[in-house]
Simulated scan of single mutants.
Amino acid sequence: MTRFVILLSGPIDPTQDLRAAAAGCRCIAADAGIDHASALGLSPELWVGDFDSTTRPREAYPHVPVETFPTDKDRTDGEIAIEAAIGRGASALLLVGALRGPRSDHAFSNLILALRYAARGLDVELFDGQERGWPLAAGNPARTFPLSSGAQFSILKFTDLAGLTIRGARYPLDSVEVPFHSILTQSNEALGPVEVALGAGTAILLAEARSE
């Protein structure tokens, strides 16, 4: 499995866990996402974007190839970076800097991208040092997520859900239907690793990143 770190422009906390998750991965930076490279000990093999948000001059990274795109375009810089990674053989993506920031629409678009590429069969994780997220694969066997005891987590719904099972949590569920407008899956608490199965629907597990 070829895992790429995609550096996006949202804030990160370069914790030991985040650095460990990124270690040994190939890396592509999207615009201001390159600002995270040094903190994570990464050397991007490509830097893409319209460069309307980075505070670093491109000359600061003379060893990193650059691909420049117009500001007026129908793709985000993050989307361009992900497609570049796939073109280089990516089968797994770690999206760093995807979850927070001054504009909520940027975080929302990154969640949509995570869902899109997971639906295409890539292994996708979002991690910024404070929160971790994983798209849930409907119709597949239950998956266990490495949450620490006491970590808060939610299932973010993008459709109605069916057959949702949660084990290893303060509020377990057993093959329930959850309408899109329900907040039933908001603010649960892990008792340790959490097992989730989803029969049908589109959702992301978003969890507090805590070390034991």
Rank of each mutant, 00 (worst) to 15 (best):
F158L: 14
Y117R: 10
L147N: 07
A22P: 02
R75V: 13
A20E: 09
S148P: 01
A37I: 00
G168N: 05
Y61K: 02
I86K: 13
L95H: 07
L184V: 13
G89V: 06
T54S: 12
L205F: 03
E59D: 10
R58L: 13
T165N: 03
D72S: 14
S175Q: 08
E177C: 10
N110W: 07
P11Y: 08
D77I: 00
R56A: 14
G168W: 03
V64F: 08
R3Y: 05
N188A: 14
R103M: 11
D74A: 15
A203E: 01
I28Y: 02
E195H: 08
T55C: 11
A190D: 02
P62F: 08
I183N: 11
T165H: 04
A203P: 01
D50M: 02
E195C: 14
D123P: 03
P135V: 11
L40P: 00
T54M: 05
T76E: 05
V66Q: 04
R120K: 15
F4T: 00
A81W: 00
L18Q: 07
S9A: 15
P146A: 15
V124H: 02
P62A: 12
A84G: 05
G192H: 04
A114K: 04
P179T: 11
L115N: 13
T2S: 12
L95D: 03
S187V: 05
Q16R: 14
T54N: 04
H106K: 08
S53I: 06
G150Y: 11
P70A: 14
R26S: 12
A200V: 09
R19S: 10
G10P: 01
E208R: 15
I28R: 02
R26L: 09
Q16S: 13
E125D: 04
Q16D: 12
R56H: 14
L94A: 10
E125H: 15
D13K: 15
T68R: 08
A39H: 07
D35Q: 12
K157I: 04
E195L: 12
V178G: 01
P57W: 11
R132N: 09
L198Q: 03
V48S: 03
D72R: 12
R170M: 11
W134R: 08
E79T: 14
P172T: 10
A39F: 11
L42R: 00
L111H: 13
M1P: 02
A23Y: 04
A190Q: 02
E131R: 13
L122F: 11
P102G: 15
